[in-house]
């Protein structure tokens, strides 16, 4: 076995323009799909819990299909399948400034987002269900309609509970972007494959690719730890023991 350290380090520390562009696409798709999936997933979650039976069934069916089929298949189906059936074709869009937003990237983001929505829906649902029932009742008794109750009373409490699982979802999302390479999006994996087919430094290149993903997920992990600490500090305040008043009694007991 020969590992070309010189090549490895040069690629790692001074990656090619093509690779950096792949890195950009990876991060762009992950962030966009996570945001879209989080918004759509909230809608799916609310439908799943709606009093209306039809809404519940539609949301349940959606979650069932998405979670029961491979993401890779969903990606190919949305980009290639829908186009072949003349249902939906993703065309490149020219953005101002001469930037092209390729159809394959659009399809990739959409597929990742639709997939993410199903998982986010279940996370939101578990968060909402773990909020004390008394909170719903207090909000209702004040006369809040459902939308206002969720916006101001339920979701702020549910989000604290589900911060950690949402963080995990984005970690998975970052890695799942590699699947979009099958429809020709030059994200980090496909760029690496392309460079490899010209240089055949397979071992070095994929080690470097792995390290770049490790860097991304580690940065995200650091951010989440920081966010959790902040939350824990504010939760201390929210759940502060009744020091001043119960203190005397505890001492007496």
């Amino acid at each position: 076995m020969h590992f070309d350290w010189g090549y490895f380090w040069s690629q790692l520390l001074t990656p090619s323009g093509a690779f950096l562009h792949g890195l950009f696409l990876t991060v762009l798709m992950a962030v966009a799909a996570q945001l879209l999936g989080s918004i759509f997933g909230l809608g799916v979650a609310l439908c799943k819990m709606a009093p209306n039976r039809v809404l519940r069934a539609v949301a349940g069916g959606y979650i069932w299909i998405i979670r029961g089929t491979p993401l890779l298949v969903q990606i190919v189906f949305i980009y290639t399948g829908l186009a072949a059936a003349n249902i939906l074709r993703f065309n490149d869009i020219a953005l101002p400034g001469g930037v092209i937003f390729p159809g394959s990237v659009q399809a990739g983001i959409l597929a990742l987002a639709l997939n993410e929505a199903a998982y986010m829906a279940e996370i939101y649902r578990s968060g909402i269900l773990s909020v004390d029932r008394g909170q719903f009742e207090a909000a209702k008794a004040l006369g809040m309609p459902p939308a206002m109750m969720f916006r101001y009373i339920i979701m702020p409490q549910a989000l604290r509970i589900i911060l950690l699982p949402i963080g995990n979802q984005f970690n998975i999302m970052l890695k799942n972007t590699t699947l979009v390479s099958v429809i020709g999006v030059s994200e980090m994996l496909l760029v690496t494959e392309t460079i490899n087919s010209a240089t055949f430094r397979t071992f070095e290149l994929y080690a470097m690719l792995a390290l770049y993903f490790l860097l991304l997920t580690s940065l995200w992990h650091l951010f989440m730890s920081w966010a959790e600490q902040r939350l824990a500090r504010s939760s201390d305040r929210l759940a502060a023991p009744r020091k001043t008043l119960a203190g005397g009694k505890e001492a007496a007991a």
Binding site: G134, A138, L238
Partner: peptide, 19 residues
């Protein structure tokens, strides 16, 4: 929801909004 504004309620377990 609109009708409920006429009648306030105080609960055994207070149910204040903790956040």
């Amino acid at each position: 929801a609109y009708q409920r504004r006429e009648v306030g309620m105080v609960f055994q377990r207070f149910n204040l909004f903790p956040h």
